[in-house]
Design a protein around this nucleic acid. Structure first.
Lengths: 301, 301
DNA sequence: GGATGTCATGCGCTACTAGCATGGCTGCGT
DNA sequence: ACGCAGCCATGCTAGTAGCGCATGACATCC
């Protein structure tokens, strides 16, 4: 029972005439007549009584009509559903992101996205890069904002990596620190400084890469949150490295210096999607907003 | 969006593979591949991600799938509905019949019909022949059991008349009446009898036709119901004509005589349906039961 | 690294279906 | 009362859509 036959049948039933239905559907009368005949042959019964003036539904025709209506209505609903998805008038977007990205980059992109496509349901999960990638492959997230270092290159061929930005590291020092007036600084100059880091083991901190190059920071204070680190820095307890992405709204008692390019560990930030799978429209669109948000973090310094 | 495409799409989605779906649907892989491509072209989006091992639904595919399921399910429901109607596993039968037919003929036919097709909803309306025919044309009844005389020939070309029987008239006399032992009687012999009839005007009674032939019955008692008439007859108040159809379960104090064929007014009983319209399956089947029931009223005398 | 699975696609053929024309039928209007 | 106009069915023809048979590209598994 092809839908066109049902469409024709519905029109004929509604207009009460094969000829009228043919005109309405831009067919010839013969075509419609034959389509009705085909439908009747398929269901094995007469659906219409041919009267001298038009047609009338038989019992079976009356039984079929509401089903035909329902089928055709659902069909257009199906089309609408897919179209809405394409036009981002519906659907969802499940984003995963690592902690620092949730500080500003991802929220800004999400805000811009929601302003443009308010009908799309958003969700955001913070997590570590490996966990985020697991979510991706499990189908629990549509896109994950992840970073490459220090956990090693994540060029796993199972993911499409859309490069967003290279995250620069800033050195936070107290506003009255001798280095506070400088624009850039070299690691070597910091040999005597006390570092406030996320882990007592230098290898697991933002300086992990530099350790291999021979630089061993002195870590006296361990703090997990950026706000805590900055508080220690402001109090003159030491210096800290913070990624640009986390350096939003730095208080005035803190000065931020850029590291010399040669000393800077490379932390590449990507938006990852599952390789081989086509990106849902919401993801494609969201990537553009991510790009825009990322641009705001690469130019200012 | 033709239903075959949806069927193919559903199978592919369910089996996770175009090749598997092709096997399942008895198509070649190329055919299925092309049908999916056609569906995708029609909705304007990719519905499947082609993976090295089978396929996976895209966001749009996931959105379409439940609709496809619903459409196909409804489609088979439609087919079932029509089939049930044809097999008399559903539907309704609305019968109209004149008063005497409701006494026994129609109830017996209905009972037999219901025994054979319990799923069909039955309804029965009693009425006069013209009103019944109006119900038919108005579409409020499916079949009407009507009688031709005395209201004149009803060969209106708007109806298909299925002849059921010629209703014979019986003369009811008291068991101790002089005529009680006879098998047949002529009208001329009844000139002196007192008639119990439905109307004081002989023209409007069952003898209406005979009036034209010169027979004028003496009507002393008017009774509308057959039971009332028979009561009067049994009490020796007179004689009465009753149609065979109403002579069911006659009490023992009544004797029934047949009129001489030449004196008998012809009352032809038909099952009428609207001309030009195909008969619903229930009606066709019911006519057979009516024929059977009618046979029981023609043979016994 | 060959073998085997996946899906896409060019090619030829068939079969469906649309249009055109005609014919039969019925009811309307003159 | 009779022709006419409208309705639907159908024989015929042409275009095309869709199938199967190949083959090709690609990735995985043994």
């Amino acid at each position: 029972m092809e839908t066109q036959l049902l469409e024709v049948f519905r029109t004929v039933a509604h207009l009460g005439s094969i000829t009228a239905a043919a005109r309405h559907l831009r067919f010839t009368q013969s075509a419609v007549s034959r389509q009705i005949a085909a439908l009747e042959a398929e269901v094995g019964t007469r659906l219409l009584d041919r009267l001298p003036r038009g047609i009338a539904l038989t019992e079976q025709g009356r039984a079929l009509l509401p089903h035909a209506d329902a089928v055709l209505d659902r069909l257009s609903a199906a089309r609408r559903a897919v179209d809405e998805l394409d036009r981002l008038d519906a659907g969802r977007l499940r984003v995963g992101a690592f902690a620092t990205a949730v500080a500003a980059l991802v929220p800004r992109a999400l805000a811009a996205f929601r302003a443009a496509h308010p009908a799309v349901a958003l969700s955001l999960v913070e997590g570590m890069t490996p966990a985020l990638l697991d979510r991706l492959t499990a189908g629990d997230a549509d896109v994950a904002v992840v970073s490459s270092a220090p956990s090693g290159p994540l060029d796993d061929s199972r993911f499409d990596l859309h490069h967003l930005l290279d995250e620069h590291l800033l050195l936070a020092v107290a506003a009255d620190h001798p280095l506070a007036g400088r624009r850039t600084v070299r690691l070597a100059e910091l040999a005597g400084e006390s570092f406030i880091a996320g882990s007592p083991h230098a290898e697991r901190t933002l300086l992990g890469d530099s350790v291999a190059a021979g630089f061993r920071p002195r870590i006296d204070i361990v703090a997990g949150e950026w706000t805590g680190k900055l508080g220690c820095v402001a109090a003159g307890l030491g210096v800290a490295l913070i990624p640009v992405l986390a350096a939003r709204g730095t208080p005035p008692d803190i000065a931020l210096l850029r590291l010399h390019p040669d000393d800077e560990p490379v932390r590449r930030v990507y938006a990852a999607t599952v390789a081989g799978r086509s990106r849902p429209p919401a993801v494609t669109r969201f990537l553009a907003h991510l790009d825009q948000a990322a641009a705001a973090f690469t130019t200012p310094l």
